[in-house]
């Protein structure tokens, strides 16, 4: 199973496609419809969006590899149980270790533990890819999808924070030493910090996305 022993080069065109495909064409959030709950819950601000994106990249890469390694000995009838155990095990382990050695980081992350475990994007990729493919392509698929998921989160987080709180990464951009838009009558849009706003922002991203990629158009 060692990828080094395979004849195929590590970054063959096929493997690179695994990495690139989910970024735009087969994006988890806008096309595959996976991982929405967390996209709504954490994107009020840019910072948590970035934190959870990084966490998902790590968890997804490794759980895909683990699943792929044991794919041939896993009975299909209990595969869901096996997948979830792997994911939950990894996330809980990471959380426990962080709590012991990097308490400040864990305070940031422990909020998301439940969200990462039930993030359907992770299990979705295990079920759709890792269970039938070798470890190295599975790893690339996991990382690629996690990036595709991450950048949407960051974009949504950016707009919601900018329009809802008037800040970017907690730095105020509406009221600065040089200009103050509030004096001109500008107001933050309180709607943007409520969860439904995330749905509407993602809806607009899909709109833009699909006007660029006509092949994704649906008909209902």
């Amino acid at each position: 199973m060692d990828p080094m022993n395979e004849k195929e080069p590590l970054f063959s065109p096929k493997n690179v496609r695994l990495l690139k495909q989910p970024l735009v064409k087969d994006n988890p959030i806008t096309v595959q419809v996976l991982g929405i709950c967390s996209a709504l819950a954490v994107t009020v601000k840019l910072e948590p969006s970035v934190v959870i994106s990084l966490a998902v990249i790590v968890v997804m890469g490794f759980s895909n590899v683990m699943m792929s390694i044991i794919r041939n000995i896993t009975p299909p009838r209990i595969r869901i149980l096996v997948m979830l155990t792997i994911i939950a095990f990894m996330v809980v382990m990471v959380d426990q270790v962080l709590k012991a050695y990097m308490y400040d980081v864990s305070r940031q992350l422990s909020v998301f533990v439940g969200l990462i475990i039930t993030n359907c994007i992770i299990m979705g990729r295990l079920e759709a890819f890792a269970i039938a493919n070798k470890p190295w392509p599975s790893f690339l698929d996991g990382v690629g999808n996690a990036f595709g998921y991450g950048w949407i989160l960051v974009v949504v987080g950016f707009f919601r924070e900018l329009l809802g709180s008037g800040t970017i990464w907690d730095i105020n951009v509406i009221e600065t030493p040089w200009w103050n838009l509030y004096e001109l009558g500008y107001q933050n849009n309180g709607l943007m910090i409520l969860p439904p706003a995330a749905l509407i922002v993602v809806g607009v991203i899909i709109w833009v996305h699909r006007s660029k990629h006509k092949e994704l158009l649906e008909d209902n």
């Binding site: 419809v33 409520l194 969860p195 749905l199 899909i206 709109w207 006007s211 008909d219």
Partner: peptide
């Protein structure tokens, strides 16, 4: 519905409105 919004896009937006 505008073509790019059909299907998933409009569903997101409707759900947002229902949430409100």
């Amino acid at each position: 519905v505008p073509a790019p919004l059909r299907g998933l896009g409009i569903t997101y937006i409707i759900t947002g409105l229902m949430g409100i």
